[in-house]
Design a protein around this nucleic acid. Structure first.
Lengths: 341, 341
DNA sequence: ACAGATTATGTAAAGGTTTACACAGCATAG
DNA sequence: CTATGCTGTGTAAACCTTTACATAATCTGT
């Protein structure tokens, strides 16, 4: 029953007294094989404990049952929940997940490219906003790929994520409803599509409320805590203070809160702050952070489903799947000071 | 240069005007091949952009270059940093990482067992404290495996983690130094080895300070936030209050803090709390949590190194690698109330 | 100068699977 | 009764490597 070496298809064939071709067919095209034979084969499989050797299968088929997931940083708090969605969907279709992180290092990207070239992965999920590979190789031979969490900047790759414009709109609408009119946007970026979409939502919200945008309170940022802190410093330097900070993500919001607290201000009494993502920390902040929730597990699930579809059909049914973001109201937003005294 | 189908070893051989055997040797045993030949082969490889087909290689060699990492929950905040260490070490040795999570579901475990049986993974890193597979299969044919983060309960598997006893000792010593003598232990467990080791450290600390242990303030728990909250409730019910809570992990500590705050107490003024792990949230709590840091990336790195050693040597040099935990002093610990008034 | 050792390379088998093609048996239609 | 088609199965090739074994060429020591 449990030999030292795993049972092969040949062992099964011998026991079932059929050819290996029939065994293979009994497994993969059961309708092509007579009932009685199928029964014999199944019994033989049970006896031997046979599982098909994935290596041999992949070699023969010319494609593996692994999906490569590349993220810039595995430690990103958004990563794990998306990964759960990806993994569940993949596993239920017989696929496994291979993991890599680039740390924004091109060299790393190339190493993962090798996984792709050597046929170890049939498809690619890109967590980073850009193709982490050199440009020449990139166009050459990329397997079916899907971008996730952040639209892919430099390649025509289908994308699954949240509706950034709508999400940002929910945040800005909340702030406006509370009475804010001078609202800073922290985390503007030309290279990160998700961020620029969030800015679009921000501007649409201002516009709808008849507030003319003020570029002096639109701050650049790369989504790090430090960039949030820096933005606060800049605003105080320039003396162009808003009453609320709409941040491009939660990390930035954390940075903003740190910056404001360091100057002795209270949140939300003196300034309101919103984030985006709803990372696990958000609820533990003081005050807890009002933010926009990404349906992370759902994103992962949809992305993997789309990729698997690509793998079988070849053509993507849709080029972009946008999920609905939800406003999570906590304690970092209140009416601006002038309304309360 | 970039054909539709990837270059094979045969293409390289043809261009270099040698046999495929020589190409293979030039790649894997360069010292066995003449300098001039090696040069030709390398040029041919550069021209074709050849990468060896991992499937064919694994099939021939009878072992893959993938390591399966199984965790009970990918979302665990401890997971990602360990994963980084695992991944870096694996990649630098040409291995890739395959990911699975069981959600404590035996059925899931079996599915991952298939990955192992079908030769897709050469080794196993177990993040969960128990072998997630059925018992019969378990003994049958398990590949080289290493437990990580939590000792493996039901199998003689080498383990890499933190020195739980020493870590717990650091926490209890801090509390005692601050003047606490009634210190609760929250998160006792018979099945989780890491937790029981931490309790050992707790008791050693009490003993060294000449404090006789009081079982009424040793509370069971499974390491969840809820279990921490529950423990507080129980203590208030029984009216056997400590002045400090030493918690088996940060999640539990968070639960304890929630429970105490809900009853209107201040931390650390009324009660001190310590955690274990130093999860990313710990620093964002109010008050920020004094805890024991797990060197997570280092744990991952050592675990993978040990596994790779196992894969080549067969015999593990050591059966347990314990890394040094560090005390991280933040704001959730202070002298007990009676000392301060 | 020659036996024997050493070095460099080639030939071919093996690893486990899938599948095109061939074939046998049998039913159906003419 | 023969031609035709269908169904179920088997044979063998192919996928791409690695490596044991064989062979050819060169070197070493006498």
């Amino acid at each position: 029953m449990s030999n030292s070496t795993p049972a092969t298809i040949e062992d099964v064939a011998r026991i079932a007294n059929v050819s290996i071709a029939t065994v293979s067919r009994a497994i993969h095209m059961p309708e092509k094989v007579a009932n009685s034979t199928r029964l014999k084969v199944n019994q033989a499989i049970a006896i031997t404990g046979y599982t098909t050797n994935a290596m041999a299968r992949s070699l023969r088929l010319g494609r593996s049952n692994m999906i490569l997931v590349v993220a810039p940083d595995i430690g990103d708090p958004n990563f794990s929940n998306i990964l759960i969605g990806l993994e569940n969907e993949a596993r239920s279709h017989g696929y496994g997940i291979l993991i890599g992180h680039t740390q924004n290092d091109a060299q790393r990207g190339l190493e993962y490219l090798k996984f792709l070239n050597s046929n170890q992965a049939a498809g690619l999920i890109l967590f980073t906003g850009i193709l982490p590979f050199g440009h020449q190789t990139m166009t050459a031979r990329l397997p079916p790929s899907v971008g996730v969490f952040e639209p892919v900047f430099n390649g025509g790759i289908p994308y699954v994520g949240v509706d950034d414009v709508a999400g940002a709109r929910k945040a800005i609408d909340l702030l406006i409803t509370e009475g804010h009119r001078r609202i800073a946007f922290v985390g503007d970026s030309r290279t990160r599509l998700a961020y620029s979409r969030r800015r679009t939502g921000y501007e649409a919200g201002l516009d709808a409320a008849g507030i003319s945008p003020d570029l002096r309170i639109v701050l650049e940022g790369d989504g790090t805590i430090e960039s949030g802190r820096l933005a606060v410093e800049q605003l105080f330097m320039r003396d162009t203070l808003p009453t609320a900070f709409m941040c491009v993500n939660d990390q930035t919001a954390i940075g903003v809160m740190i910056g404001l607290k360091a100057r002795g201000y209270d949140i939300p009494e003196d300034f309101s702050v919103t984030g985006f993502d709803d990372v696990p920390q958000a609820v533990f902040m003081t005050p807890s952070l009002t933010t926009i929730r990404q349906p992370r597990t759902a994103i992962g699930k949809h992305a993997m489903a789309l990729l698997l579809e690509l793998l079988s059909d070849g053509e993507p049914a849709e080029t972009e799947i946008l999920l609905r973001p939800d406003l999570v109201v906590r304690n970092s937003v209140a009416a601006p000071a002038r309304f309360r005294r």
